[in-house]
Amino acid sequence: MTAGYELQALWAALVLYVIAGSVAIFGVVLRRKPERAVLALLFLGLALHTASIAMRWERIGHGPYITMFEILSSNIWSLLLVYTLAYWRIPAIRPTAAAVMPIMFVMMGWMLMSNPYDGHAPSTYHTIWLFIHIGFAKVFMGTVLVAVGISAIILLRQSRYHGGRFTRLPDDKRLDELSFRFMAIGLIFESLMLIAGAIWAQDAWGRYWNWDPLETWSFLTWLFLIFSLHLRVAYKTTPRTSALLVMAVFILAFLTFFGVPFISESPHKGAV
C-alpha cells in the first residue's frame, strides 16, 4: 500500500514539474510572466516528491542513494530544490527556468526508464558522513544548475533565435557576475564534498583516497571548475566565454555523477 502511495506521489510531483516547466517555457515564448504560478507548481511538486522519497526511505530502510532510480530521483529533487530557492529569492533570473526545466525533463524521463528495485545498502553506508558527503554534492550540482540557466540566457541572447525575449533580464555582464557567484558557491560545496567523502572513505575502507572512477572524475571536475574560475580572472573572459565554461563544467559534473555508475558497479567501485 505504501509503495502505491509512494508511486502516486512521485507521479503527481513529476506532472507538476512538467506543468511548471511548460508554463515557464510558454511564458518566455509568449512574453508573459507566469512566475507566481511556476513557483507555486515547483513548491507543490517538491512537497509531493519529498513525501514520495520519505515513504520509500521508510519502506526499504535506506535513503535514495543506492540504485540509479534512487540517485536520479533524489537528484531531481535536490536540483529543483536549489533552483526553486534561487528562483524564489532572485526574481531577476526567473526566465532561466525555460532553459533549466528541459534538463530536468531529460532526467525525469531517464528516471522513469530506470529500474525502481529496492537495492541493498552496504553496511559502510550507515554513517552520517555519507549524508554529509551527498548533501554537499547536491548543493554543488544545484548551484551549478542555476549558473547553467543564467549562462544559457547569455548564450541564447547572443544567438539570433531569442527574438528579444530576454531583454527584461539584467545585461550580460551582470548575468555573468551572478553566474560566477553560483559557480563560486559550487566550488565551496564541491570542496566540502571531497573532504567529507575522504573522511567517509578513511573510516569505511581504510583509505581516504583511492583514485576510483568516481573519486578521479570528481577531482577532475573540481580541478576544471577552479581552472574555469581562474581563466575568467586571468583573461577577463567575455560573458559568452564564461557561459561556455559554465556549460563545460556542468557537462563534466553531470557525466561524473550520472555517467560513472555506468562504468562502475557501485557509486564507489569495490568500496562496499
Binding site: W211, T216, L220, L223, I226, F227, H230
Partner: peptide
Amino acid sequence: LVVLVLVGTGV
C-alpha cells in the same frame, strides 16, 4: 592555468 592543466593530465 598551465599548472592546473598539468595536474589534470597527471591525474
